[in-house]
Design a protein around this nucleic acid. Structure first.
Lengths: 124, 124
DNA sequence: GATTATATTCTACAGCTGTCGAAGGAAAAT
DNA sequence: ATTTTCCTTCGACAGCTGTAGAATATAATC
């Protein structure tokens, strides 16, 4: 029952589904990803793979499929967050932020926002 | 000349190579990854793929290969860091930290360390 | 120099991903 | 009831990954 990381395209669909925050039908993805030039088949294949993998459930309404998430965004985020930190930053958020700073990818406003956020978190 | 993300196992080799911080021969990886149970062939295949992809260079010394990185750790980290943030956290480190907090994956000491680091960064 | 031990290169293959077109079934339009 | 239109399910296929045995080249040993 361990959650695995999804390949890129399947993840995009999941993110869209979580964002919808309700059950949707295939068409939702079509419009959402109209820019990608994916054929209906492509989207349906990805959805059925997500289903096999246990990320979504699918029920029929007439001839149409209705999709719902079977795994929550938070559950999945945990997997991705941990995987990222442990693979690349010794499992520590501090190392990650330091890495961003090393590469000049941390702006002054990023720093301010972060400090602000940390202050709030401590308040709890 | 855009750097692409590496698959898991190739990345592990690269990380090891960067860590070595000098040119190494195949044997280095063997000992480093003795726990993985990889055969010599497996390691050599991955190395040759890394070479094709332009991540390392390889020169011969007698019948032995000597490998060196052709892409720096920092360059690569930038790719991974940005990809991670943009794919999953709206491109913002703040959102990422917030996500960790939401999932109770940010300990008090993480927070302290981070604040400390940010303070130092501002000092520059 | 012939034989034995090593290291590398080639070839292979199954499973996963990204992408569909073709085939089949239900709904809508005539 | 028939035709047309949608929608979904079924293959399909090429490229990428993980993994390694077989074949080959090079070095070491007798």
């Amino acid at each position: 029952m361990k959650i695995k990381k999804l390949p890129e395209t399947e993840l995009e669909l999941m993110l869209a589904l979580w964002e919808a925050d309700k059950s949707v039908q295939r068409n939702y993805f079509n419009t959402k990803f109209s820019n990608k030039g994916w054929s209906d088949s492509t989207i349906l294949t990805m959805l059925s793979r997500l289903q096999e993998k246990g990320f979504i459930t699918c029920e029929k309404s007439g001839n149409k499929n209705i999709y719902s998430p079977a795994i929550s965004r938070d559950e999945y985020m945990q997997v991705e967050n941990n995987s990222f930190l442990s693979r690349l930053h010794k499992g520590s958020i501090k190392h990650f932020v330091a890495s961003l700073a090393d590469n000049d990818e941390l702006s002054a406003s990023d720093i301010d926002e972060l400090e602000q956020l940390l202050k709030e978190l401590k308040g709890k």
